[in-house]
Design a protein around this nucleic acid. Sequence first.
RNA 1: CGGAGUUUAGCGCAGCUUGGUAGCGCGCCUGCCUUGGGAGCAGGAGGCCACAGGUUCGAAUCCUGUAACUCCGACCA
Length: 419
Amino acid sequence: MLFSWRWISMKMSTMMLKTEHETPSEAELTSHRLLLRSGMIRQLASGIYSLTPLGWRAMQRIATMAREEMNRIEGQEMLLPLVQPAAIWRETGRYYSVDESLNRFQDRGGQNMVLAMTHEEAVTDMARHVIESHRQLPMMVYQIQTKFRDEARPRGGLIRLREFLMKDAYSFHADEGDLDKFYEKVRKAYAMFYKRCGIDVLQVDSDTGMMGGGVAHEFMMLAECGEDTLLLCDACQRAANREVYEASGRDDDTCLQCGQPVRAVRGIEVGNIFQLGSRYSLPMHADFTDQCGVRRPVVMGCYGIGISRLLACVIEANHDAAGIVWPETVAPYAAHLVTVGASSEVIAVAERVYASLADQVLWDDRDASAGRKLQDADLLGMPKRLTISPRSLAAGGIELRSRRTGTVQIVPVQDVVAP
RNA sequence: CGGAGUUUAGCGCAGCUUGGUAGCGCGCCUGCCUUGGGAGCAGGAGGCCACAGGUUCGAAUCCUGUAACUCCGACCA
């Protein structure tokens, strides 16, 4: 069972969904066009989008995989507030150092507040209250939650948003060595996560920007529409963010690691991880007592994945001229059921298939032409298409077509329907 | 935040030069007919032409201002 939400309508006739035949004029990127045409998202303001039930379902599948990978390395899910007092941001100095992308406002009582663009301050506040002893370390917490960043220039649909869903995790350690070990575990978990999502990523040396701290890596998906430039070495596969490369002082185009020529490629950042050290624990006094009875700041790491952006990236990496080609792991439904005509035989078989496949099937039960339904099935991109028609029944059952390969076969009704 | 562009029905667009009370395609509603790649016929609904001021007998159209959105750049855990 892929989902447990039986309450979501799975008949297209009554679904909160409208597909578009024509390409929306504001969309230039493939993922943006397909997200709009498939009806998964709707723009409410620049960089701010509503997700329809179909879009939310796809995003939830990505979020679920992120959750599973975090749980696998013993992450503990939690939830931190979006609205936060300015006070904790003053403690770390970021209230003053971050630009207008941090939205500041006052509540009705005149208190200075911010909309969280990231959650180091809030999680460090939690940690300084809970963590007292080295015996509690290491530990990691994470959340899948909304961020608001008032970006100067949102772009590309879900590629660069102002409001978006992020998986952010924070680990706490007694020393740098333990952070190093855990950091490697996270790198492996991230690699597994992106693989499950059906996209290829490169791990890239990164600078730490406003996050502070020491070591950092970005996870980049290679794509022409990407905003970032990477310098990639074909010889040893080492990739570096342009800022890091330039900061190295190297002025020829050769690899930092092996000296072979590098080439510039474009990429989309789909995640990043940082060794924060005591950047936040020191100013916020998140201390613990070590084995020798000495109070020391806890050593931290933080690990982010842009869930919203990833939905766009999955589509950038998985589509054809007709529409989306979902990886099975992200597809909002495993199968798309198309009924042709409304004969009693066709409907009777469809009802049995629909009941049997529970919430894994989307049934296009609309009173629309066969052509329209088939085009929409390609656009929406579920991995398998089940067509029930007088023709298929005469041929021996239900037509099963793979969206990715286009291969078609007739399968007997009893092979699809549970006994 | 600099530069460019756009804004007319749910979506895609025309109309603006030369002012005269809003149009096309798709979609939507009714009926008939149809059902394997966005069918057909007939009838119908839907717009404060982004907003605010001007000019004019009269403004989608001309003038001024504002806003929103998109793209390029700068910025960007």
